[in-house]
Each structure stands twice: as structure tokens, then as C-alpha cells.
Amino acid sequence: MAPIQVRPAEPRDEADMAVLHHREWGGPYVVVHDTRYDLRELPALVAVDGEGELAGALVYRLADDGLEVVSLVAAAPGLGAGNALLAAAEGIALAAGVDRFWLVTTNDNLAALRFYQRRGLRIVAVDVGAVDRARRLKPAIPYVGEDDIPLHDELRLERRLAATPRPQ
């Protein structure tokens, strides 16, 4: 199996990314920390396999408070796309001189919590009722999530990076 390669998303990736985002989020919109994002309007990285097929996509937001992973979706688990995408996004954060790498997941997403914690991210906050509030902006968010766990809260995970200060 050829290694996963990561590159910035290009217009030719839009259709494949749309399929992943529809499968994972029901479309291009996600609501996180009381903010509605259109994944098509943010920078993205894609992971491609040895055949050149899309293996995953990571959408992010870079700001003074760090690099936020807004969406991370793998076409299939266990192929290394998630690892490769996170490593590439961390490289972007370091190059930008930010020292915080963070994301939000939901209380039901045990697989994601396991995945992120194994990669050094730590739970730093729980926003009780955040998903309940998000339903006002995106009513399609289900009430019951993975493993039949009621879906109510957001968990913020982060890792501090050894970034060099940004030039003034």
C-alpha cells in the first residue's frame, strides 16, 4: 500500500470533498461553538492514496488563537489519512507561528476522543448544551449520536505547540 500524501485542496477535489462532508455532516455546513461554518469557504487539506483517490479531508481555520480543525473526515478508517492530515495541519500552525492546535467534538464521538487523545490532544473544556443550541442553526443535527448516546455537549480538545513567535 502506497503512503498517504497530503496537499492543499484544489478545485478538482470539491466534488469528492462534498461527498465526504455530506456523509459525515449532512452537507457543507457545520455548527461548532455557536458558529455556523460553510466548509467550502475555509482552507482545506486533502489526503490522497497511492492511486490518487481522496482518502480524507481536513478543513481548518487559522487565527491568532491558533489553528482550529473545523472538520476532519477520512474516507475509511485505519488507512492513515487522519494521522497524515493532522500532522500537515500542525505544520501549518507551526509555520504560522501559533502555539495552539485545537478542535471540538461531541460527547457521543468516542472514536474521535480516542483518536485525538492518542495524538496528544487533551480535553480542556466541556460546553454543556452546545449541541442543543447548535440545533437552532442546523435543525438536522440528531438528538441521539453514536452508540445511542444522547447528543448534547461539545468537548474542546487542544495541544500546545512549540511555535516560534510570529513576526510583527
Rank of each mutant, 00 (worst) to 15 (best):
A89M: 01
D64W: 12
F115H: 01
N107G: 12
L58T: 06
R100N: 10
D127T: 15
A93N: 04
V73Y: 11
G52A: 09
V131Q: 14
V73K: 08
P77M: 04
A88D: 08
G80N: 08
L58R: 08
A111T: 03
R114A: 07
T106H: 10
F101G: 03
V104Y: 15
A55N: 14
L94C: 13
Q117D: 05
A76I: 04
I123W: 01
V124C: 04
G97E: 08
E68S: 10
P43W: 06
L121C: 00
L54W: 11
D108I: 01
G120F: 00
R61N: 09
R119I: 00
D127R: 07
R61D: 13
Y116E: 01
A74K: 07
A55V: 05
L110M: 12
L110S: 04
L72K: 12
V73M: 09
T106L: 04
V98A: 06
L54E: 12
D99K: 03
A55K: 09
D108Q: 05
A89D: 05
G129K: 02
L54M: 11
L94I: 04
A74L: 07
N109M: 08
N83A: 10
R100A: 02
A84T: 06
E51Q: 11
V104L: 15
L110A: 15
L86G: 02
A75W: 11
E53P: 03
N109D: 11
A57I: 04
I123L: 09
D49N: 15
D49P: 14
Y116P: 06
R114T: 08
G66W: 06
T106Y: 03
L67M: 13
G80I: 03
E53K: 15
L85P: 08
N107V: 05
D65W: 15
L103C: 10
G56Q: 11
V59Q: 12
G50L: 06
A57P: 04
E51W: 10
D108S: 07
L54P: 11
A93K: 02
Y60V: 05
W102M: 03
G82Q: 06
I92M: 12
G129P: 07
Q117V: 00
V69C: 12
E68Y: 08
A84K: 04
V131H: 11
N83G: 13
T105N: 02
